[in-house]
C-alpha cells in the first residue's frame, strides 16, 4: 500500500477561481461482512469542476458506485466504513461534517440520479409529492407553491402535459419518463454537482439517447459538475470531458475522453475498448477479457488485474502500480493522463 504517497493526483485547475468543486482524496471504503472485510474502494482520487463531466467507468464491483455513495453520504454505515480519505466539497471535508450538515448538502448542493427509476421512486406517493418534497423540506415552501414548482420542473425535463400528470404515481409513467422525473428531482434545487449512477442502463436504446441528451443539455445550462457512473463506453464518448477507469476499487487510468479511446494506456482499458462489438468485425468472434474481476475479500497482491492481463510480468504480481503520469515517447506531458500499469509505455506506444 505504498502507492498512496507517489500517486499522482488527478488534474486540477491552476488557480483559485477554477479550484475543483469536488475533490476525492485517497478514499478507502470497506464493508465488514461475515466472511471478512471487503475492500470496495482502495485509494481513489478524483476531481470534478463546475461545468465538467467526469465519467467513472468500470465493471460491477469495481467500486464506482460505492465511491459515489460515499460522496453522497448514503452508504449504510455499518456495514460500510471509511477508514481513510477525504471528500472535499468546495474545499470542506464532508467526512468531518455533522450528520445534519451533510443532510443539508444532500439534494440541495449534491444530487443523485439512480439507475432504476421504478424502484428508486416511492411507489405509493405521487410524483408531484416526491418532487415537491425537495422544495418543502429544503426551502420550507408551502404545499401549493411546491406543487407549482414541481409542474415547472416536469416541464423543464420535457414531460408532456406536466400539469395533468403531477398527481400520477410512478408506475403510471413509462421508463424514460420516470428517469426524467428522477432527473427533475435531482435538478430541483439547482445543485452544483450531480452524480448519475448508470442513469440509462435500465432504458431502451432510443430512450437512452434522449435521456442522456437531456442530462447533458441541463448540465451545460446550469454549469453543474457531473459525475457519470457507467459501464457503457458508448454513453461516455458523447458527454464526458474526462474519464476515470476503475478496477477492483482503484482508478487504473485517467484521461481526457477522446484520448482514452484513441490511445489507452492500461491493458484493462484496452480490453474494454476491444470488447465493444464493431461492424467491420462482423462475423468474427467477439473479444472478451478473460477471467473474472477479483473477489474484494481477497484482492490479489500486486496489480489487481494481473491474473487477467496479457502483459503481466513478475513485477505485476509483486508491486501495486501507482498511477504513473503518462507522457509522449519524447517526454512531452499529456495533461490529465495517468495509468496504473508498470508497462504503460508499452501499452500506449507499443
Amino acid at each position: 500500500m505504498t502507492i498512496i504517497e507517489d500517486a499522482v493526483p488527478a488534474p486540477r485547475g491552476s488557480d483559485e477561481e477554477t479550484a475543483p468543486l469536488l475533490e476525492v482524496r485517497d478514499l478507502h471504503v470497506e464493508f465488514h461482512t461475515r466472511e471478512g472485510v471487503a475492500k470496495a474502494v482502495n485509494g481513489v482520487n478524483y476531481t470534478v469542476s463546475a461545468g465538467e463531466t467526469l465519467a467513472v467507468l468500470g465493471e460491477s464491483g469495481s467500486g464506482k458506485s460505492v465511491t459515489a455513495q460515499a460522496v453522497m453520504g448514503i452508504l449504510d454505515m455499518p456495514p460500510a466504513r471509511i477508514p481513510r480519505g477525504e471528500i472535499l466539497f468546495r474545499g470542506q471535508d464532508m467526512l468531518k461534517m455533522s450528520r445534519e450538515e451533510r443532510r443539508k448538502i444532500r439534494g440541495a448542493q449534491i444530487a443523485m440520479i439512480f439507475q432504476d427509476a421504478l424502484s428508486a421512486l416511492n411507489p405509493v406517493l405521487t410524483v408531484g409529492y416526491q418532487l415537491g418534497e425537495m422544495f418543502r423540506v429544503h426551502n420550507g415552501m408551502s404545499r401549493k407553491d411546491a406543487k407549482a414548482r414541481s409542474i415547472e420542473l416536469m416541464d423543464r425535463v420535457k414531460i408532456p402535459a406536466a400539469a395533468a400528470r403531477v398527481n400520477d404515481y410512478p408506475h403510471q409513467f413509462s421508463g424514460g419518463m420516470r428517469q426524467r422525473i428522477m432527473i427533475a428531482m435531482a435538478l430541483a434545487l439547482e445543485p452544483d454537482l450531480i452524480i448519475a449512477d448508470e442513469p440509462t442502463t435500465a432504458l431502451d436504446v432510443t430512450v437512452q439517447a434522449q435521456v442522456m441528451d437531456l442530462l447533458a443539455e441541463l448540465q451545460r445550462e446550469y454549469q453543474m459538475g457531473l459525475i457519470l457512473i457507467t459501464h457503457d463506453l458508448g454513453v461516455v464518448a458523447d458527454v464526458a470531458d474526462k474519464i476515470a477507469v476503475m478496477y477492483a476499487g482503484r482508478i487504473v487510468e485517467t484521461a481526457p475522453v477522446h484520448e482514452l479511446y484513441k490511445r489507452p494506456a492500461h491493458p484493462y482499458t484496452r480490453g474494454l475498448l476491444d470488447s465493444i462489438p464493431r461492424l467491420d468485425q462482423k462475423g468474427q468472434e467477439l473479444y472478451a477479457i478473460k477471467g473474472l474481476p477479483p473477489n474484494l475479500l481477497h484482492i490479489p497482491a500486486g496489480c489487481a488485474f494481473n491474473a487477467r492481463c496479457p502483459k503481466a510480468q513478475d513485477i505485476c504480481r509483486e508491486k501495486v502500480p501507482a498511477l504513473f503520469p503518462v507522457t509522449e515517447p519524447d517526454g512531452t506531458e499529456l495533461p490529465g493522463r495517468g495509468s496504473a500499469c508498470h508497462f504503460w509505455k508499452e501499452t500506449i506506444h507499443g
Binding site: 443532510r103 443539508k104 444532500r106 439534494g107 444530487a111 443523485m112 439512480f114 416511492n122 411507489p123 406517493l125
Partner: peptide, 25 residues
C-alpha cells in the same frame, strides 16, 4: 429499499424518511 435510499439522497430528515417513505409501504 431503493426508494428509501432515494429519500435519504434527497436530504430529507430521518424522521421524514422513516415516517413518510418507509412506514407507509
Amino acid at each position: 429499499s431503493d426508494y428509501v435510499r432515494t429519500a435519504i439522497a434527497k436530504g430529507l430528515p430521518r424522521r421524514r424518511v422513516i415516517g413518510v417513505h418507509a412506514l407507509r409501504n
